[in-house]
Design a protein around this nucleic acid. Structure first.
Length: 600
RNA sequence: CGGGGUGUAGCGCAGCUUGGUCAGCGCGCAUGCUUUGGGAGCAUGAGGUCGGCGGUUCAAAUCCGCCCACCCCGACCA
């Protein structure tokens, strides 16, 4: 890559002088010199569009499982996303800092997470055998920083953020940037005097996030979320709907209820009713699954009680759900108050032979704890396993024939269920989590004694919030939402350049001179440009341009020879129109302004 | 960690079952000429300890063992 002007040392994210939100300024690349190794064929390991296209277009290369190198174009996109993030964070009053990746064990001992985080935290020792972890997140470090340097109510609220590399030793990295082990994240931490202050900070961050994702060109949805290892009470995830998303979310078509499926509630209808007759034992030879038995008995799966055996902290526990529903392990974990549980595996079935796989039922089941889904409260006319090989029970009544230890919401909502708020129909869709905000409350400040003195001199713990954006994951999410079979289609705000100049047959002096002039004048205006000055055939240039996905393209070809016209094309819509250079320059500025994405 | 699979030139792959002119193809790369509105043509050429180590054999990319890396499914997770 050859620098083509632009002040050295200009901070990424500067360059607002043109005031139009046009990508960057001054950095122009000649494709003949730029390091943009494009590929005709897809890499064998890339399954999803963003991964495949980023590699093919020369933005990204893999160096180990879940670890990537960003090439110049990929780096630019990261920088442009960071610029948006910085602008919105700064606007919301947060201050940027730089925190270490490598963090001492002692801090993590204080919060209790050295033990709790498990193998997902990458651990290492220095030459003196001191333990360190590579930060998967930075609550401990930031809390330490603030407790050591902030002590008065006058200094609050405070909101600090950083954009940096995180490392999480994922069990199974996959999907390119969507689930890497090393990735770039923006994380912010707020410190407030009280609950109200924390809620205000939270709201401000929430709104900043909304602006970030919108500016990056995403359609997104904020949903209620579980807090996991980070902790805290209130949390929202920002989801970008995409088929390849690894999260499922439920949202109401009629009100604004939306939640991660891990905690989405839904209203149960009336429980099933039988005819009040006595329970009967029926022979069901070799039929174990709900499907087999329901077909055999001619009963709807929803009238079955599916009795799932879980091993919870090494004790068998029965979980009862309707036959047509899935148990939701996220909900179950919160009901159980532990994450140490799993569905019985083969070994567990052998270890507890009193439970007959395929014929377990709640009637007469000897187990310490039974948890039933809310739907089963007061239900009758049910069918279930008889705890006897080849037998099931029908006409079973909850309360009469069995009595669960407790009822809880332990099943997943699904398409068409009733919204818990308004009764409207819920929809379920897949999404990519690109950000999450948490009200942490006092979890870290109490554990790590991060306190301040209030107006009366009383020492109190700070109320904290934390807020993450997966920058590199967001980059992938943008592509998942903006691509076609030929390549990527970058939204202007995060594009690696605004304009791609394609002089066809570069050796023709007239075309070449026009291309050079256009590029020079774009430079004057601060419009970032990629100039394809390679002596490649038209087909190659078009194919690479489609792949790289710069939003606007100026084609200098036959129309130029005849009438001095340049063809302006929009990558996303395919719209094209011919015009002279002056017109093109002003048209380009117009389009850029229309996009309405300029920050400030 | 369990199950499945793959490692042969920069990338994508064939060859392995049936050891022996199998070191091969396409793309890319280099050089020259032609070509330039949708991944051009011709010619010439460079490039691989066949993932590693060990074994069987007269002979191993090919058979066997161990190891490593990577991918997919699952468990887990922001």
């Amino acid at each position: 890559m050859v620098p083509q002007g632009g002040a050295p040392g200009r901070p990424a994210g500067g360059g607002r002088e043109n005031g139009k939100g046009i990508p960057g300024k001054g950095r122009i690349m000649r494709q003949s010199k730029a390091f943009i190794p494009t590929l005709k064929e897809s890499p064998a390991d890339a399954e999803i569009a963003s991964h495949r296209l980023l590699v093919r277009a020369g933005f990204l290369r893999r160096v180990a499982a879940g670890i990537y190198e960003f090439l110049p174009l990929g780096t630019r996109v990261v920088q442009r996303i960071c610029r948006v993030v910085r602008e919105e964070m700064n606007r919301a009053g947060a201050q940027e800092v730089i925190l270490p990746i490598m963090q001492p064990r002692e801090l993590w001992e204080e919060s209790g997470r050295w033990a709790k985080y498990g193998p997902e935290m990458m651990r290492l020792k220095d030459r003196a055998e001191r333990d360190f972890g590579l930060g998967p997140t930075h609550e401990e470090v930031i809390t330490d920083l603030v407790r050591n340097n902030v002590s008065s109510w006058r200094e609050l609220p405070l909101n600090l953020y950083q954009i940096g590399t995180k490392f999480r030793d994922e069990i199974r990295p996959r999907f390119g940037l969507l689930r890497g082990r090393e990735f770039i994240m923006k994380d912010a931490y707020s410190f407030d005097r009280d609950q109200e202050g924390m809620e205000r900070s939270y709201r401000e961050m929430y709104e900043a996030y909304a602006r970030v994702f919108t500016r990056c060109g995403c359609t997104w949805r904020a949903v209620e979320a579980a807090t996991g290892l980070i902790g805290g009470d209130v949390s929202h995830e920002f989801m970008v709907p995409a088929a390849v998303g690894e999260d499922l979310i439920a949202y109401c078509g009629e009100c604004d209820y939306a939640a991660n499926l891990e905690l989405a509630e839904y209203m149960r209808g009336e429980p099933p009713r039988g005819d009040g007759g006595p329970m009967e034992r029926v022979h069901t030879p070799d039929r174990r699954t709900i499907e087999e038995v329901s077909g055999f008995l001619g009963l709807e799966p929803s009238r079955f009680v599916k009795c799932l055996m879980f091993l919870v902290e090494d004790r068998p526990t029965a979980v009862l759900v309707p036959g047509d529903r899935e148990a939701n392990e996220g909900k179950l974990g919160r009901v159980l108050g532990t994450d140490e549980f799993r569905l019985f595996n083969e070994e567990d079935w052998r270890r507890f032979p009193q439970y007959l796989q395929g014929f377990v039922g709640p009637v007469g089941l000897e187990v310490e704890e039974t948890i039933a889904d809310l739907y089963l409260r007061g239900a009758s006319g049910l069918a279930c396993g008889a705890n006897e090989v080849d037998y099931h029970l029908v006409g079973v009544e909850e309360g009469r024939d069995f009595r669960p230890g407790r009822f809880a919401d332990v099943t997943s909502a699904r398409e068409g269920d009733a919204c818990p708020r308004c009764g409207g129909a819920l929809h379920v869709e897949a999404g990519i989590e690109v950000g999450q905000v948490f009200q942490l409350g006092l979890k870290y400040s109490e554990a790590m004694r991060c306190t301040y003195d209030d107006e009366r001199g009383e020492t109190k713990p700070m109320y904290m919030g934390c807020y993450g954006i997966g920058v590199t994951r967001l980059m992938a999410a943008v592509i998942e939402q903006h691509h076609d079979e030929r390549g990527m289609m970058w939204p202007l705000e995060v594009a690696p350049a605004a304009l791609h100049i394609l002089p066809l047959d570069y050796q023709r002096e007239g075309r070449r001179a026009a291309a050079e002039e256009l590029y020079a004048r774009c430079l004057e205006r601060g419009v970032e440009v990629l100039l394809d000055d390679r002596e490649e055939s038209a087909g190659v240039k078009f194919a690479d341009a489609d792949l790289i996905g710069i939003p606007f393209r100026a084609v200098i070809g036959k129309a130029f020879d005849a009438d001095g016209l340049i063809e302006l094309q929009a990558r996303a819509t395919g719209e094209r129109s011919r015009m002279g250079m002056e017109e093109l320059l002003s048209h380009l500025e117009g389009l850029v302004e229309e996009t309405g994405l300029s920050g400030e």
